[in-house]
Design a protein around this nucleic acid. Structure first.
Lengths: 342, 342
DNA sequence: TTTTAGCACTCTCTCTTTTGGAGTGCTAAC
DNA sequence: GTTAGCACTCCAAAAGAGAGAGTGCTAAAA
């Protein structure tokens, strides 16, 4: 018995993992023998499998069943064994076409996650683009009625958020434009982080008579700035996870429950520096993620950035999923670059 | 054997249905005897149950099991047997407080469905308010960059939608205001239905030199009007359906798949005139809805309207769900009235 | 005429037992 | 180092055995 990895061991392990990914069933020595065109006997393969098991890459559900890859094996597969796939040309074109239709960052990300869920059979998460220094680009209001106004805020990266604000007293158009001009003068071009509650309330003094009327407007502006500063996290394709036979109904429910908690998801996506990262279930601290794995990439054209992630069962088709995710990330990056440049 | 409904039969049927709703298990004659304080023997109850079965209200999974209510029994229960419950005072206050925080129709409906999912354990759907004659209240644009503008449209009922629009050529502020003024002059106060593509493109001629630059702006406006005209349908609490033991994992998946198709949901909610309607699974034509039932109400303060619906297993706690839904509908109606009046 | 007690009967659910098969581990020969 | 052969292990599906819950029916009681 040798505990050293050889080319043949890798070959066997790769074939085993890929078959396991395909069927979800333990793989036996006889099947592997066929797969390798009978160049070696099943007994030899059994010996190799015994080695691989001793090395921690294989597990067996019970004494007389085939072997199943361990998380460690998946790790090796993702890092080394798997041969990267390239998306076929027509798939790439299809993705390009769908994404190029997007007119603003929000719908771009929406569409990106939609495509991912459709093609990979996983759930997808995306965050809307964030800037390191998120700047206020423009503030606008719109009168709804004497007591109600709508306020809109656009950031440097083109994210637009709106909010309706109820006023206790009727407001005149003049008062409103005065307040809005004041906000624009003070905050346009400044980072969102400067829109603190004290900073906003400090402006009340400069409003003179209309201060009383416009006070709610200012706090509404502050709240609006907050929602702009937070990345919006969008989860799609939850149904895909239910479709997978790998999840026990209960654990699927737990997983979905976990994914629906925004903060949790946010924490999961954040904190990675770039490139593609694959986190296998066992490597995560979250008990809900044990049976799953997560692939995250970061898109970052210029000074803005965000994340795209895929969540699926441990036994997912990594080669395809990664190819898909990488191409989409790259395309999102390109289009986002165009969107903010123009 | 008499096939006529008597007070005692109703009493037995009611008790049986409520117990079945509570436990999901077939109910036997002995349990019912206890429930009726032993005023009659189990044999008598068996006789009555045999009658009720002959009348089509009861079913038995197999010869020697207790009885289970048929869909027809649920129908009778909802229409006649069930005694309407009133929400306790503190629950009402809780709902009031949460809904009164809403500042615009969108978040109001969002919050309403959230509350419903939390308290009833069902999934909830809501549509954003629609008007019979949805009017354009105001159009506004915001410059993002030389090639990109954001356009916003507010309707009479305070629904605000925005869209980013990419222009092929750089646009000047003057051209932009001209185009927006033109749109405002022509459409403010008019029904959204008048914003047809020909009507919008007809304005191009009046734009003179800037027609070429602003053309995309006009079609964007048309598309924006479309999205305003369509009710936005929001589904919440899908996880609740998974939690219910009544659904076979597969059928739950089918149901969720169905509910996630916007158009389907829309059709399901629309087409009722008012008041509260309960559609039991078997009464629906959709195969996916067989095991479920749906409770829909309509809110309609003044000339706007929309729907709120609950979706749960056939075996749901109708008394509570209906009380909850009615109170929320009524509260939404009240607050929505305030929102558009002020 | 309605209600009740009594009892045989039916069907499911659970627990065991059986059996077939797939796959391994080991040994000895190549 | 590789292979054939074979005993062994363990699961999974099928088959069987009780136990229990609940009914339907009949005949007596109210």
């Amino acid at each position: 018995m040798s505990m050293v990895m050889t080319a043949r061991k890798e070959q066997i392990l790769t074939a085993l993992i890929e078959e396991y990914i395909r069927t979800g069933e333990p793989v036996g020595s006889k099947w592997l023998m066929d797969k390798m065109d009978n160049t070696v006997s099943s007994a030899t393969i059994r010996n190799e499998m015994a080695d691989l098991a001793a090395m921690g890459f294989l597990d067996q559900p019970h004494t007389s069943a085939g072997r199943v890859p361990t998380p460690q094996a998946f790790r090796l597969y993702v890092d080394k064994l798997m041969k990267k796939r390239k998306l076929p040309e027509n798939t790439r074109r299809y993705i390009d076409e769908r994404l190029e239709r997007a007119t603003d960052p929000d719908v771009l990300m929406e569409e990106a996650s939609q495509i991912l869920t459709e093609t990979t059979g996983c759930a997808a998460v995306t965050t809307t683009p964030q800037e390191q220094q998120m700047l206020v680009r423009r503030i606008e209001v719109m009168v709804v009625s004497s007591h109600v106004v709508a306020m809109m805020l656009m950031t440097g990266s083109g994210v637009l958020r709106s909010r309706v604000c109820r006023l206790p007293l009727p407001v005149t158009a003049a008062e409103l434009t005065e307040a809005v001009n004041l906000l624009n003068e003070n905050f346009v071009g400044k980072p969102l982080s400067t829109v603190t509650l004290p900073a906003v309330q400090g402006l009340l003094l400069q409003l003179g008579d209309s201060a009383l009327v416009c006070a709610p407007l200012l706090t509404a502006f502050h709240e609006l700035a907050q929602t702009c500063a937070e990345a919006e996290i969008r989860l799609k394709g939850q149904l895909n996870l239910l479709r997978s036979p790998d999840y026990h109904p209960d654990s699927a429910r737990n997983l979905l429950g976990f994914l629906n908690e925004q903060e949790q998801l946010g924490r999961m996506l954040s904190g990675h520096t770039g490139g593609l990262r694959v986190v296998l279930g066992n490597e995560s601290l979250q008990p809900e993620l044990q049976g799953s794995s997560i692939i995250v990439t970061r898109y970052a054209p210029r000074n803005i950035h965000g994340s795209i992630g895929l969540i699926g069962p441990l036994r997912m088709d990594y080669a395809t999923a990664i190819a898909e995710l990488e191409y989409i990330t790259q395309t999102v990056e390109r289009i986002l670059g165009q969107l903010i440049e123009e």
